[in-house]
Amino acid sequence: MDSLLVVIFGFIAVIGALTTAFNREPYIKLISMSMMIGGIFPFIVDRGFLDVAAATAVIAPISTIFILLICRKGEP
């Protein structure tokens, strides 16, 4: 992969991880975690593991939906 692309997708993954780590509200943490996963996916595809990428793309939202079950309704 080109070095510009490595820098850009690595930037997206790291800034998503930092926002997930240091924010205090659960919904903002979940949105930033989705952003971090988006930065990780091009690295999986670049290695050529298309089957792993397809399986992971289906599994990741299911994991988020499990976490959403215990986010309380009124709590921001």
């Binding site: 991880a17 997930t20 780590a21 943490k29 975690m33 971090m36 996963i37 992971t56 976490i67």
Partner: peptide
């Protein structure tokens, strides 16, 4: 527990990248 469970997802993806 909720915050800790969400934070626990980050090292999971990091470990996946190391395995990759």
């Amino acid at each position: 527990y909720l915050i800790q469970l969400i934070n626990l997802e980050i090292p999971g993806w990091g470990l996946l990248l190391v395995m990759l």
